[in-house]
Design a protein around this nucleic acid. Structure first.
Length: 750
RNA sequence: UGGGGUGUCGCCAAGUGGUAAGGCACUAGUUUUUGGUACUGGUAUUCGGGGGUUCGAGUCCCUCCACCCCAUCCA
């Protein structure tokens, strides 16, 4: 568990501490209507992770309330995903459909309470009656049906006596609620479809909003964690649970931002389009952000989890850069997998001064990877290197083989180009080179310095393999549709050459092809006769990338957007009168006066306090700031403190008994207890310390404790003034007079 | 437009009114038989804008702006 907690864990901890929840129970509740993607992985990591961190448990629940879209093949994929990521769900896999009877009983209960009714409006009418975001809705005439009628109708619905859409069960909440979700939400609809688990038992199926909260409750879930788009649904969630007055404990819903990654799509709909449209090769296409895709591509579960952890949990909608994911897989694989050599685009090298052949010893791991293992590397006069690793007319920062520059064949000898052979079109087809006999890797006595070591294979004993090079699926950061697809997202190399040990020894499934990237033996198509490797991810920042970048200097023009101030609503006549009084008569600044005048409650409170104490400015400040804050949460009648107590508070600020800082503390106490300010000051001994002698001593103490900062301050870091003042205030429990402290610190540190 | 949310570096993201964490990316250097890794530096005088309160504001108040979600018998 990381030191700094995300907001969900903060909530969970607070709930444990307050006793709101006895045991932490979470759930991962996907609808089995599609293949899970990395967004699900985030949800899995959160739900199972929180349960693990707080010694609770997490259920896996299939939210199968819509029989028209769901299928058992998806539940298998979902189970696989959770298992692959290394989590275990509590007990069996749960299904919302297992609770259909209980949920149905709760619906009956709601009907009996007069809180639900059978509506017989058509689909269009329902939509029309719902109103819009700006207009209130109107209730259906069927809402007037008696409990008996509703019971009878719902029973018939359940028995399948009506056709789809003929009737619907709705909650009776509020057709004029500003939250559209609360305008008599639908609870049950008729569906004459076979459910993949419940078969034809039911003719009615509960809607998400009704089933989800109850399923959570039935399972004893404490924290129902979902994504941001369900924020509006929280009100129904609570309404259902509360009006049914269920025996506690009951679950509470919390929302976090779903995961977005650039250059890909995450919505089920768009993913489905790609699969069905044949743009990709099935749900496990390695270019897809599906769990199956990442799995087939070669990503490890550890890397996916590390990624989920690194992006954090917050409420701001965000788009994470793929490079962050790529870092996680590289970081994981770097310490795990063997290094081998594979030439993707071979260029023939003939070593004119080498005869016979030999087997060179080569470690699978570099010195900085603490793993053991090695293999034999066949070597002869016929070698293949990467075409990119030779240039006839290289730029100056090219480190590889050129007519004038030798290179080392990694793990073997240093070679020097002697002759470049080209075909009729001018393409280089072969290099004749010489090797340096005494430059053998590990026992190099040649003294030759080379700029780089390149990978290679023995041309005659290398194996031919297929390599699939994957690149980002889309060519734009936020793809809209198929038109944004990257045409080069898959490049297949049929005849790459790989050193034989990889095929013969099979030291692993994942490899680093030296200088290229990480690759994975394709779990589906790989055979010993025809090996296939998927590129998981390239190595970081190669020279290629750098050179490409300089070609296209994507200069970003900095356009500082001018922010336009919108129009402020004009004040009413009475507000204007108050405003004028405050500014002219009481000499308040216009901002404070504005705040007060525009809020009837605040101005009334202010006037009352003013009648107790003639200190218009101080009073106005505290009312327009502190009191205003409290009033944002609760009604004025619920306030524990009175206007006259505020007047008392201001009085002791004005006479210097307490500082403004302490006043905040006192105010907070008043909010909680409604106690008189002077009593609080007395009880807690909050009278401020203004004696320079006392403060001076404390400053000295702080200075000796923080010599570095004293230096920094003297060197000109004036920001540190706040630091010292803060330390002194901390040492005195906030009681030191900050003005005096400021002045003294300033003097001492001159 | 009503309601619900969210704005801190190029991308994520911490931040009890008291020195703006961390990661990715970028960049410079050191080590390196991978242009990898590792290591060491450099990257926000400023937190969407503007006011206000305060000795002191990313944090409190007011206001404006931008973006996301809600009017499926989907979840």
């Amino acid at each position: 568990m990381s030191e700094r907690k995300d907001f969900l864990r903060t909530i969970v901890e607070a709930d444990i501490k307050s006793g709101k929840c006895k045991e932490v129970v979470t759930r991962f509740p996907p609808e089995p209507n599609g293949f899970p993607h990395i967004g699900h992985a985030k949800s899995i990591a959160i739900n199972f992770g929180i349960a693990r961190d707080y010694n609770g448990h997490c259920n896996l629940r299939m939210d199968d309330t819509n029989p028209t879209k769901e299928d058992t093949k998806y539940v298998e994929a979902l189970k696989d995903a959770v298992e692959w990521l290394g989590f275990e769900w509590e007990g069996n896999v749960r299904y919302t459909s297992d609770y259909f009877t209980q949920i149905h009983d709760y619906a009956i209960q709601l009907i009996k309470m007069g809180k639900a009714y059978v509506d017989s409006l058509g689909e269009d009418e329902i939509r029309e009656y719902r109103g819009t975001v700006t207009e209130v809705g109107k209730r259906s005439k069927y809402a007037e049906r008696t409990v008996e009628e509703n019971l009878e109708l719902f029973e018939k619905m359940k028995k399948g006596e009506f056709k789809d859409g003929e009737h619907i069960l709705r909650a009776k909440i509020d057709m004029s609620a500003p939250n559209m979700k609360l305008r008599d939400p639908l609870l049950y609809r008729i569906r004459h479809v076979e459910h993949f688990r419940a078969g034809n038992t039911w003719a009615v199926y509960p809607m998400y909003d009704f089933a989800h909260c109850l399923s959570d409750y039935i399972e004893g879930v404490s924290h129902s964690i979902c994504t941001l788009e369900f924020e509006n649904n929280r009100d129904i969630y609570n309404w259902v649970l509360e009006t049914l007055s269920l025996t506690p404990p009951r679950p509470y819903q919390h929302e976090f931002a779903r995961l977005g990654i650039n250059y890909t799509v995450m919505s089920k709909r768009k993913l489905l389009e790609l699969v069905e449209g044949g743009q990709v090769d099935g749900w496990d296409d390695p270019r897809l952000p599906t769990i199956a895709g990442y799995k087939r591509r070669g990503y490890t579960p550890e890397s996916i989890l590390a990624f989920c952890d690194s992006v954090g949990i917050a409420k701001a909608n965000s788009m994470v850069d793929v490079s962050q994911l790529e870092f996680c897989i590289r970081d994981d694989l770097n310490l795990k997998v063997p290094r081998v050599m594979c030439v993707l685009d071979p260029l023939k090298i003939t070593l004119v001064n080498y005869e016979g052949s030999e087997e060179l010893d080569a470690s699978y791991y570099p010195d900085d990877v603490p793993k053991e293992g090695s293999r034999k590397l066949p070597f002869s006069s016929d070698i293949c290197i990467e075409r990119d690793d030779f240039m006839e007319n290289p730029p100056k920062d090219y480190f590889r083989l050129t007519p004038d520059q030798s290179v080392r064949l990694k793990g073997a000898y240093i070679i020097t180009c002697k002759e470049v052979i080209k075909d009729a079109s001018g393409k280089v087809v072969e290099i004749k080179a010489e090797y340096s006999k005494d430059s053998k890797s590990g026992s190099d006595t040649s003294g030759i310095k080379v700029k780089s070591a390149i990978h290679w294979v023995d041309a005659t004993r290398a194996k031919e393999v297929e390599v699939r090079l994957y690149d980002r699926l889309y060519s734009v950061e936020a793809p809209q549709g198929v038109e944004d697809l990257n045409a080069d997202s898959l490049k297949i190399i049929k005849n790459a050459l790989i050193e034989p040990a990889v095929i013969n020894e099979k030291p692993d499934e994942r490899f680093q092809f030296e200088r290229q990237g990480y690759f994975y033996a394709d779990p589906v198509d790989y055979t010993d006769e025809k090996p296939v490797f998927n590129k998981i991810v390239g190595l970081k920042g190669s020279w290629d990338k750098k050179s490409k970048k300089t070609e296209t200097p994507s200069k970003k023009v900095e356009v500082k957007k001018e922010q336009i101030d919108g129009e402020v609503v004009a004040m009413s006549q009475t507000q204007q009168t108050l405003f004028d009084k405050y500014t002219i008569e009481l000499k308040l600044n216009s901002e404070v006066a504005n705040t007060l005048a525009r809020d009837a409650q605040l101005s009334a409170f202010y006037e009352e306090a003013l009648s107790q104490l003639n200190s218009p400015v101080s009073l106005a400040n505290i009312v327009s700031n502190e009191v205003a804050r409290e009033l944002k949460q609760i009604e004025i009648s619920e306030l524990k403190f009175s206007a006259s107590q505020i007047a008392d508070l201001v009085k002791i600020i004005d006479d210097g008994t307490i500082s403004n800082k302490i006043a905040k503390q006192v105010f907070e106490e008043m909010v909680n207890s409604g106690e008189n300010p002077s009593k609080i000051v007395e009880d807690k001994g909050l009278v401020q310390i203004s004696d320079p002698a006392i403060i001076s001593a404390i400053i000295d103490e702080v200075m000796t404790k923080n010599p570095d900062n004293v230096e920094k301050f003297k060197a000109g870091n004036k920001k540190l003034l706040g630091f010292f003042v803060g330390q002194v205030l901390k040492a005195t429990g906030g009681k030191a007079n900050p003005q005096v402290v400021n002045q003294l610190v300033g003097q001492k540190l001159k």
